[in-house]
Structures are given as structure tokens and as C-alpha cells.
């Protein structure tokens, strides 16, 4: 064991599939370098499990650079662990101390059933996107971007909302399992821009309807989502969605 390496105890949720009951399993993580990422620590543990003929821990990951949103882990009571504004893959082991016990759980929400261990099914987010998270345009050559002028502030606000990577940490953090931060970010990023304004009313109505059908809870404005979001998506988006939803419900000219 090289200097500064740590020995940790992991308490990890193991669950075969969504229809079985899960339980916690305890693992030793020995000789962990403080420079490893949290996922690399899991890789080390899994290597050891595989070489001793045991089943590795299933977890989601892809880009490992904070942009895909796959690495869902609820670490010591917080989504993506103890640091603000990052995903699990960006969390380093130097955030822990030698001898620590770390409890790792999957996102827990009725709308995110466990696939296996720490991996959850977030296709409910995909269905919300299919319900309205798009603009209908004819394909063909891309138009000149400066054809439609967009105020700088609108472009910036839309861009901030578009930073959402769909990780689901907002749902995981919320005591109500509400998906309002995610949905509002997606509603905002489109409705703030001229191309998205055209379908604004249908979009917000359909996306909220789908969100409710998926079984997410109701927002009580605790702000946990904003605090835990790796992309610092703002609660202002939720208020924007609330007003758009109100407006669309009462003014949409359809029976």
C-alpha cells in the first residue's frame, strides 16, 4: 500500500432486478488512492470481486467526465456524494478519510425502478422528452444562425437551462421525488428561444401531463434539487414552468 492510500468500508445496495427485494451488502475497499475517482474505486472493488469469483456491483456510467449524467449514486445521504456541483464520476476519493464507511444507494423513486443494484431505469425522463421536449422543424440544410436574432439574456438563460444532463439527481434529492427541476429546465431551454416559442403551450401541457403520469411527486419548493444539481439548474425554471402551465391551461384555444 503506497503512502496515503485508504481502507474503506462500503455499504452498497444490492438488488437483482426491479421485482425482487434488495438489501445492503458490505464490502472492503482496500488500498484506495485519494486521487481515484469514486467510480474508479468501484472498478477496483469490482475487479477484486470478479477475481474471487463473486458477482460485481452493477452501476451506471459512461462519459466519466460529468457530461452524460449516467453515474447515479446516492452517497452518504446525498446524490453524487458530498461535493456540490459535480457528478459521481467527478468525485474524488480525497473527499473521504481512511477508515470511513460509505453508504451507496440507488436513486429511489417510484418513477426510477431499480434495474440492478445501483442502476436505475430513467426512461421516464425519455418519455417526458418525447411528450414535448423538441421543436418541429423541416430537415434540410442548416439555416444561418443569425437569421433569427435572439436577445443575449434570453440566449444565456436558455443555455443555462440546457446545461441539464438529465441525470435525475434532482429527483433523487427531493423528499417528494419531484422531477420539476428537470422538466422545467427542458421546458425553459426551448420556450425561451424563438424556434421553441411556437409549440410552447402544447409542450408544457404535454410534458407536465407525462411527468404526472410517470408517478413523480409534487414540488414543495424545498430547493434540494437546485442545491444538488451538478449543473446548478436554477429554481427560476420551475417558476417559469408554473406560469407557462397556468397560461397554457387557461388560454389554449382548444376544447
Amino acid at each position: 500500500m503506497s503512502h496515503g492510500n485508504m481502507n474503506l468500508t462500503l455499504k452498497v445496495w444490492k438488488q437483482k432486478n426491479k421485482d425482487t427485494k434488495g438489501r445492503f451488502e458490505t464490502y472492503d475497499a482496500k488500498g484506495i488512492s485519494p486521487d481515484m475517482s469514486f467510480l474508479e474505486m468501484f472498478d477496483v472493488v469490482n475487479e477484486q470481486l470478479i477475481s474471487s469469483g463473486k458477482e460485481p456491483i452493477a452501476f451506471d456510467h459512461d462519459c466519466r467526465e460529468g457530461i452524460c449524467g449516467m453515474c447515479s449514486m446516492y452517497i452518504n445521504g446525498r446524490p453524487h456524494g458530498p461535493k456540490d456541483g459535480i457528478t459521481t464520476c467527478q468525485l474524488h476519493m480525497r473527499s473521504f478519510k481512511n477508515g470511513d464507511t460509505i453508504v451507496v444507494e440507488p436513486w429511489r423513486s417510484a418513477a426510477f425502478p431499480v434495474i440492478k443494484d445501483l442502476a436505475v431505469d430513467r426512461s421516464s425522463f425519455d418519455r417526458i422528452m418525447s411528450a414535448g421536449g423538441f421543436v418541429s422543424v423541416n430537415t434540410g440544410n442548416a439555416k444561418d444562425a443569425n437569421n433569427i436574432l435572439i436577445p443575449k439574456d434570453d440566449a444565456d438563460t436558455a443555455f443555462d437551462a440546457a446545461a441539464c444532463i438529465g441525470c435525475g439527481a434532482c429527483v433523487a434529492a427531493c423528499k417528494n421525488s419531484s422531477a420539476m427541476l428537470f422538466v422545467s429546465a427542458k421546458v425553459s431551454q426551448l420556450s425561451l428561444l424563438p424556434q421553441g416559442k411556437i409549440e410552447k403551450q402544447d409542450r408544457v401541457l404535454n410534458m407536465v401531463k407525462q411527468m404526472d403520469e410517470e408517478g413523480f411527486g409534487n414540488c414543495t419548493n424545498t430547493g434540494a434539487c437546485e442545491a444538488e444539481c451538478p449543473k446548478s439548474i436554477s429554481l427560476e425554471n420551475i417558476a417559469r414552468m408554473n406560469r407557462e402551465y397556468l397560461g397554457a391551461s387557461f388560454t389554449q384555444n382548444k376544447a
Binding site: K11, W13, G22, F24, Y74, N76, G77, R78, V103, E105, R108, S109, A110, A111, K175, N176, S177, S178, G215, F216, G217, N218, T220
Partner: peptide, 13 residues
């Protein structure tokens, strides 16, 4: 909101 999280977390911070 209770129904939206059928399995509670072990540790909540």
C-alpha cells in the same frame, strides 16, 4: 409524495 418514493433511503442528509 409519500407514494412517489416507496423504498426510503437508508441515509438521508
Amino acid at each position: 409524495n409519500r407514494k412517489a418514493r416507496p423504498t426510503p433511503y437508508e441515509v438521508v442528509n
